[in-house]
């Protein structure tokens, strides 16, 4: 089989311009994209840079975009793509800085971020000296699921926050954090949550579920992040701004059954935060003038509010 490839190229160093190289390769019928890349490097263009390791789909090293879809070059077969005719486009995955060609900078993209979240177990000391800790396998299964992550980068590739803020810790590192938070052998929950609540941490996630949709291992990073936030809620949120926002939100629903957005905006910013409040003013003034913005003191109680408040109080008491 003959296949044509159009491969993203970029020389190392700032300021170098990205381009493309095209290659035509003769391949066996069962060839994968990495077979093609290896053949190109060996026979046509030794300067072509790309990564790969296990060749069988389990190590996550060779993630690239193939015809616009992120996947593993060792697991994607060439034949069906070649059959469509035209060139097969191979590009580095999104949201990651490129060092050279298809070689992305995993250090700043992922490894350094994982390093920040205290990525090791802090044993709780409950284990006896000579035996395993007795743990229900259902509990362990959740840890195993998190650890089936093979750092392929697809969740971060799909993330909607990273394109606007590369410093966001990202779903892959947050999933790693979840691995410890759901492990009953760990005792550092409070400390972990404090770390995760820092700016660029879990509160920066927009819970858009892109990560879960992109994860090839059904690890559900988004659900895990939501769960970690719920844990923070229980433990008392330590991120001041977020805490105020949540506090105001919860109070509003508790007091009236529904959300008082005017008060929420003000209270989230903080009543003593003059600069923050000033910033809201122009939009707020315009909104009020156009009959758009809610006016806090006009917010009234819903029927049934007392019943809703009772449920909230009950749930809080139960979970604390």
């Amino acid at each position: 089989m003959q296949a044509n490839f159009s491969v993203y190229r970029k020389e190392p160093g700032a300021g170098s311009k990205a381009g493309r190289s095209t290659y035509t390769v003769e391949l066996p019928e069962d060839a994968t994209v990495i077979d093609a890349l290896l053949k190109i490097r060996d026979e046509q263009d030794p300067t072509l840079g790309f990564r790969g390791s296990c060749l069988h789909g389990y190590c996550g090293d060779c993630t690239v975009r193939i015809n616009g879809k992120a996947g593993f070059s060792c697991a994607v077969k060439v034949a069906p793509l070649a059959a469509k005719g035209g060139e097969i486009a191979v590009e580095p995955i999104r949201n990651m800085p490129v060092i050279k060609d298809l070689i992305s900078d995993w250090d700043t993209f992922l490894w350094d971020k994982i390093d920040v979240i205290k990525p090791w177990l802090e044993p709780n000391g409950a284990a006896s000296l000579d035996g395993e800790e007795l743990i229900d396998d259902k509990v362990m299964a959740k840890v195993r699921q998190a650890m089936s992550c093979f750092y392929c980068g697809l969740c971060d590739e799909g993330c909607t926050v990273l394109p606007v803020d590369f410093k966001f810790v990202g779903p892959a590192a947050l999933t790693k954090a979840s691995r410890f938070l759901c492990d009953p052998r760990d005792h550092a929950t409070a400390e972990r949550l404090r770390i995760l609540e820092r700016p660029k941490g879990m509160w920066d996630c927009v819970h858009c579920f892109e990560a879960s949709e992109h994860c090839p291992r059904e690890i559900a990073p988004t659900e895990r992040i939501i769960e970690m936030r719920d844990m923070a809620f229980k433990h008392g949120i330590t991120n001041e701004k977020v805490a105020r926002h949540h506090h105001s939100f919860a109070n509003s629903v508790r007091n009236s059954g529904w959300l008082d957005e005017g008060r929420l905006a003000i209270e989230s910013e903080g009543l003593t935060n003059i600069k923050g409040l000033m910033k809201l003013l122009p939009t707020a003034a315009k909104a009020v003038a156009r009959g758009k913005a809610p006016i806090p003191f006009l917010h009234h109680k819903r029927p049934g509010a007392d019943k809703i408040a009772r449920i909230i109080e009950k749930a809080e008491a139960k979970e604390k």
Partner: peptide, 8 residues
């Protein structure tokens, strides 16, 4: 002890 989640 280091945290391997062996099947139970």
């Amino acid at each position: 002890r280091a945290g391997t989640p062996f099947n139970r």
